[in-house]
Design a protein around this nucleic acid. Structure first.
Lengths: 152, 152
DNA sequence: TCAGAAATGATATATTGTAACCTCAACCGA
DNA sequence: TCGGTTGAGGTTACAATATATCATTTCTGA
């Protein structure tokens, strides 16, 4: 099924969806996790763990160590609440936590924003190529660096 | 043209091809660059700048700072003598320095080795998707993490 | 051969990522 | 209730990756 109806979420709906997905995975939705997700979801670009640590520290009036942020980001990535952007060493919130996709990120070298594509046909081809080469447990990383329409 | 004859090089032939490509780009083929390329070309996995710094330091009996290695790696990437593997923060020698391809890396999470695919049709689709979204000066990053046939 | 450019060296520092161990609270069974 | 276990987060230390700046050396072309 290449065409697919996405329940794109934003704001409260996104937070609710994230919470539901995390609980559904047997994990707890704690204050710390909520805070980190909130920062990630409102950040305009892919956020580094240190960016998030700073924001959350401010919000809480108390230093939160990057360490703690990494733990939670790892959990988010594992449960599909967030994605890591490999070529930027940074993370973005997944706007439809319920759906599993190999997603494609377009990252602007100028302004740093990332836009998100889903193209199951394309990612499927990448998967197939890797599997054809004998790879198993395949996780595609498909990103495109370039200059976005706004920065041309 | 999806099918393409690659002049795959190894050993001395690869070094010669790299040297030719670099000189052709108007850059110098210095001892330091030769040493770094040699390490990169013989390294069995993607090598980090620090891996290379260590090897070259040993070979020369004198500390070579990572800094110097980065400079030369950046040059190699710019001139297509080497590629950066984003998801591994590491570099590999390009086995056919003369040809321009968007290449695809399959990286084994277990043994760390990277195999290299060229599939112009696939990378072309990725490019097209990005350009369709308004991106310019597009540089695809297509990597696949997984488990290689040997490590199954 | 000399002046300028290019390459490398040296040092410092910034950024990203892990490891080890501790505290605390919630929960569960005896 | 008591005591143990577990999960979440805190604290500290450190490792790995990357960049900035300025000094020095080497090369090149006039």
């Amino acid at each position: 099924m290449a065409l697919h109806h996405h329940h794109e979420h934003g704001g409260t709906a996104l937070t609710d969806a994230a919470q539901a997905a995390l609980v559904n995975a047997g994990e707890q939705w704690t204050d710390m996790r909520a805070d980190i997700f909130a920062v990630l979801a409102t950040y305009e670009k892919p956020a580094s763990a240190y960016d998030i640590a700073d924001q959350v520290s401010q919000k809480r009036g108390k230093r939160v160590a990057p360490n703690s942020v990494y733990r939670i980001l790892d959990l988010f990535v594992a449960t599909n609440l967030a994605r890591r952007v490999e070529s930027a060493n940074a993370y973005v919130a997944n706007s439809h936590p319920g759906c599993l996709h190999d997603c494609i990120f377009l990252i602007c070298d100028t302004c740093g924003t990332a836009t998100h594509l889903d193209d199951d046909r394309l990612s499927g081809s990448v998967r197939a190529a890797a599997e054809g080469a004998g790879f198993a447990q395949v996780r595609p990383v498909i990103e495109v660096r370039g200059k976005c329409a706004d920065c041309d």
